[in-house]
């Protein structure tokens, strides 16, 4: 993270999610932001996003971007729709990667990062969903590859399952991420053995999050 970068929540409506660690760096395709957040409130934050805007020392806006916040927990709406949402429960940790910010930003010019977290605060109850286990890392000369198993605990099939793995510093700050996706339908009770591409920003630890389409 550039020295002197000030990170703050957009006043007046960020809600229950708070940044606990953040990385701003130059990636291979553009400027990248990785963030870890925690739900400091008492309600689940569902279908949540993490939006940032970067400003220079004069307060001029340099760029804006938005990414989804991943979750381990899944909930069913109680409004009769039976819709399923991924939610960040109270006290839960979540992460986001924004990798499509313009490449022409000079990181040293960025002085302020303002974030906000749109999410649905819904009447929901927890249900079983997607689970990841057996997460392993293999170090090579090019970087790190992650492998593991994704299990579908939903009552219905999941299309196009994906796993996003964040590499973390020893302090838990995300410094990079990689996503692996399968074009398949994962039946209830079935599992998918995944292996990511090489991630060149390997950290001391990792955190993996599942996703997919109902």
């Amino acid at each position: 993270m550039p020295e002197g970068l000030e990170v703050s929540a957009l006043p007046g409506g960020n809600g229950v999610l708070e940044v606990t660690a953040l990385t701003l760096r130059r990636g291979t395709q553009g400027t990248e932001v990785y963030a870890a957040l925690a739900n400091r409130g008492s309600i689940p934050a569902c279908s949540a996003g993490f939006a940032v805007e970067l400003f220079d020392r004069d307060g001029k806006s340099l760029a804006a971007g938005i990414g989804g916040l991943f979750s381990h927990r899944f909930y069913q709406l109680t409004d009769g729709t039976d819709a399923i949402a991924g939610c960040i429960g109270p006290g839960d940790r979540t992460m986001a990667a924004i990798t499509d910010l313009p490449p022409d930003i000079t990181l040293e010019d960025v002085r302020h990062l303002v974030y906000r977290c749109p999410y649905f605060a819904l009447d929901v109850e927890p249900v079983e969903g997607l689970e990841i286990d057996a997460l392993m890392r293999a170090v090579s000369a090019d970087g790190i590859i992650y492998t593991g198993m994704l299990h579908n605990r939903f009552e219905g099939p999941i299309r196009d399952p994906s796993v996003t793995v964040f590499s973390l510093t020893a302090g838990g700050r995300p410094v990079g991420s990689t996503t692996v996706r399968a074009s398949m339908e994962l039946q209830p009770g079935a599992s998918w053995s995944f292996e990511t591409k090489v991630l060149d920003t390997g950290g001391a630890e990792q955190a993996a999050f599942p996703a997919g389409s109902l």
């Binding site: 279908s47 996003g49 938005i66 990414g67 949402a85 819904l122 997919g212």
Partner: peptide, 15 residues
């Protein structure tokens, strides 16, 4: 596209 209004697939919701 997303066919799930409460999708937990970030790419469809925000990008």
């Amino acid at each position: 596209n997303s066919n799930d209004p409460f999708s937990f697939e970030p790419a469809t919701k925000f990008q």
